[in-house]
Design a protein around this nucleic acid. Sequence first.
DNA 1: ACCTGAACACCGTTCAAGT
DNA 2: ACCTGAACACCGTTCAAGT
Lengths: 247, 247
Amino acid sequence: MPSSPGRQRTPRTSLSRERILAAAVQVADERGIASVTMRKVAEHLGVEAMSLYHHVANKDEILDGIVDVVFGEIELPVGQFDWKTTMRRRAVSARHVLARHPWALGLMESRRHPGPSTLRHHDSVIGSLRAAGFSIGMAAHAFSALDSYIYGFVLQESNLPFRTTEELEDMAETIVQRMPAGVYPHLAEMIADHALQPGYAYGDEFTFGLDLILDGLERALLGPGAPARGGPFRQTGADRSAPPPPG
Amino acid sequence: MPSSPGRQRTPRTSLSRERILAAAVQVADERGIASVTMRKVAEHLGVEAMSLYHHVANKDEILDGIVDVVFGEIELPVGQFDWKTTMRRRAVSARHVLARHPWALGLMESRRHPGPSTLRHHDSVIGSLRAAGFSIGMAAHAFSALDSYIYGFVLQESNLPFRTTEELEDMAETIVQRMPAGVYPHLAEMIADHALQPGYAYGDEFTFGLDLILDGLERALLGPGAPARGGPFRQTGADRSAPPPPG
DNA sequence: ACCTGAACACCGTTCAAGT
DNA sequence: ACCTGAACACCGTTCAAGT
């Protein structure tokens, strides 16, 4: 009687790709990406390591999968606001999601198979820019500039010596120890007179760079005839919504 | 006779931390970061894995070490040009070095001990900005914005579906296969009408975003009373070289 | 169909031993 | 002082076997 209900001691919920990825994300969040092993993910699910291979081809598929799960958590751009507000909200969401799963960025470099959530996210961002009047070339520029900034910021945030107060003081110590020899004077100054000041939080830097890029994109969008000095931009491919640049 | 010269069959050159790191970098470049194991690095040096432990505490020290080796390859900002040129040159150098060793960015997320080359590099960048008249707060803004952009760009470059022509066509195939269902229309458009156009190279996007940031920084540096609309910036800590923002 | 035990070729690291 | 062999507790993955 295969489908009869009732208490069975074997599988509480039967294994699935989704349950495996969710468990892997949880293990990565709680114990670091190095702890994401077939054996530990399986243990987390009350199952043997070899059982996982019935739902994923190998560990690489799990790693591809959890990166995609993370992208699926990022708020998709919604159309109710102007493009700058939409892009800013989405950038802030991406930053928070990636900061919550910092291992995802470390994994990105080795992943070459974007999953459906990632593709959907990118598609939505491009669509949002196009709807705001960005040409294909300008949308590509905007997409590249914004995502580069977001990813890099989170990467720095999870790596930079001056992040949290505790680590900062560790760092300050290291710097100060090497000061007698006169090395790193500017780093020392920045730590002492800036990063160690009350109220400092590296995370606050995010909006500065983000607004720099958004404002620059706005200028490029509004007046392609007047790009910022020293920063000409090429419009590649089909440009349907913006007039061609002069010259 | 311990120091007598002549042919000895044992150590061609005696092992050292530097030789171990150089070997580890080479293994990572040639066979990927996953191949950087104590056994393989040792093999590369004609030695047993256990010998490495006499020069490094553990594998983590090797990983910290090779990230620092990579930072040491980046051209330090030199003072003979204006700050924008200096920062642009340094950004281009950082981009190329990091692209040559893409595993370094993947490692960054898990590293918390910046080495001497990394500290020296950061110190030099901050010093260069300060000499150009940036206040401490503005130098922190500039440093964060530029490095975030550079790191994130390389990360995308080593990960984005549309990178090299071969992979791009793979990607286009995937997208097109899902097109009947109407998914990813904007991504499909961008690939077909932009990325697949002759002469396209994702790497060309680098300068656009870089100039956006450099121009924005220049505006912020020249006229703190007239920051771009929507992009106010806070000056934190001691600001010695720039007048305080109005209000 | 789904799960598993044993096995294989690997890991990082310790430790006692060699020179 | 520097290097190493054997050993331990892990890895990812295969395969034949269980239900």
